[in-house]
Write a protein that binds this DNA or RNA. Structure first.
Lengths: 286, 286
DNA sequence: CGAGGCCTTGAACGAAATCAAAGTCAGTGG
DNA sequence: CCACTGACTTTGATTTCGTTCAAGGCCTCG
């Protein structure tokens, strides 16, 4: 487990990754540091950063698999950017049940929920060995007043995160189990592609239970749905190894929608009464 | 409908509300304006605002019931704060179905989702006549660099919104229909209390359909759940008038009481196990 | 007074949860 | 090296909760 966090299946740009991470940090006293430009790049913020200020450095910190980055209620003072590795963020309800909120990976920001009350409202846990960049919040806002790209970055990243959560709410509120799992796979594939890994074949970092929690489903439903996708050829599944076979079908798979589909199905059922076209019904209707 | 947006049942602090809204705006050219302090107060941001700069004014705009504040894809340039009235924000999926994301009211900020892409990613609609304060985003960030309370306010409000959405995700992912409706009522009651209205008796501003969309349920389920709460004395319901009878029970409710019909069914169907402790099951278990 | 939205309630169905039992895999220690 | 352990996954059988379909009532407004 420890050794697999960087051993993606088909790390298409291993060389690139390594060299860029060499660029992206300079060793100092056994740790790594990044400058503003590198931080902006990581966040995909178009930083017309005239000042490649080498004095403006942000420290890295490493976490091992299973370690907690921050816990609920802990006093807030720093944000984190994921430089490498995989994590989960969770809420804990009044009886200890975890609700997974996100699976942050390279380029994501952690800790924003702590700004409001000055205490983190969620918990972040490393699912693999991780390298995070520390952004002390006070320092960050002060710098933001001088380097406008940075200020812009902050607002942009927070807004982006908000939009992401809105999409999540929409998904939980409106989509069927199959559609949720399908979209989850697609978004994972896209994230991997962005990071230079293969979007066709990858390992899940999280358990079925964590996926289920994230998607508002049970682990059995997740497992069954993956098996069903496998059977109809949309993906291949072997434990945590996922192969994406038909990304387009996954993207357009959605809930057996309100009235229209149902009408069709009823009509079909009434006219025939015996023709069960199971595979077809798994696909998006309309 | 138009005349009811300010006529809350039992407007406990009508006088206060009116006088404060007199304070909070000065008439100029037929419109209202607010200064920085008033904006901060509205957002419940502790603004140790030394500079009660009267030159620093933000314009109000009024919307009538049903009017759209912004639409999806529209270019973003301003944020809004709700000074009075009730709204909904929605996503529209690829076939026109609405997914309600929030019901903003006094003190809430709108439009934050537009910062990232410079286009609004949701739509906001007035559910009653509304008075909104305009915050041109460019102007706002520029001012934030001078007035640190304002900058702080921005980060704080965005973080608060993020936390709210996280709680929403947790709710949609983990709670039963009854628990969702119960929490919805509790949070509404709390919002009304904050605004100086009664938290015991109020009118819903939205249809069952909109509530259902917000909570990830059908309108029938919402209606049935409200009726069930009414029957067991947690609330009173008459169309859109809701009376909160037992706020504590609503807050802690997990899963629903087996209704008498269900109890009957169970009794009729089963004579085997005699361990049916229906009354105890009325309250949240675990 | 009639039309159209909105709300309530019932009956039947179905998607996902729950309960249960094997099967797989990684790590551990004899 | 291999058996043991415990966490994770798959699959099947059954149950339940929420949806869907349907019908009727209520309120507002023209």
């Amino acid at each position: 487990m420890l050794s697999t966090q960087t051993s993606e299946i088909r790390p298409a740009t291993t060389a690139t990754m390594q060299s860029s991470s060499m660029e992206a940090g300079r060793q100092r006293q056994g740790r790594l540091w990044s400058n503003l430009k590198e931080v902006c790049d990581l966040l995909h913020i178009p930083a017309a950063c005239s000042v490649t200020n080498e004095e403006l450095l942000f420290q890295h910190v490493q976490f091992k698999t299973g370690q907690r980055i921050h816990t609920i209620g802990q006093p807030f003072d720093t944000l984190y950017i994921v430089n490498s590795g995989f994590l989960k963020t969770v809420l804990i309800d009044e009886f200890g049940n975890e609700q997974v909120l996100s699976f942050p990976m390279k380029g994501d920001m952690l800790g924003v929920d702590g700004i409001h009350t000055r205490h983190y409202s969620s918990e972040a846990v490393a699912l693999s060995d991780c390298d995070l960049i520390l952004l002390p919040f006070k320092k960050l806002t002060a710098l933001g007043r001088v380097h406008l790209e940075l200020e812009n970055m902050m607002y942009g990243v927070m807004s982006r995160e908000l939009v992401r959560e809105q999409a999540m709410i929409g998904m939980l509120g409106a989509l069927s189990a199959e559609a949720r799992v399908a979209r989850f796979l697609v978004s994972l594939a896209e994230r991997f592609a962005q990071m230079g890994y293969s979007s066709k074949l990858f390992n899940l970092r999280m358990t079925r239970h964590e996926i289920g929690s994230y998607l508002g489903l049970t682990l059995e439903t997740v497992s069954r749905t993956l098996s069903a996708f496998n059977e109809i050829g949309l993906i291949s599944v072997d434990q945590r190894t996922i192969g994406i076979k038909d990304p387009e079908a996954l993207k357009t798979l959605r809930r057996l929608p309100p009235s229209r589909t149902r009408a069709k199905q009823l009509a079909a059922a009434k006219t025939k009464g015996a023709e069960s076209d199971a595979p077809a019904q798994l696909l998006a209707a309309l």
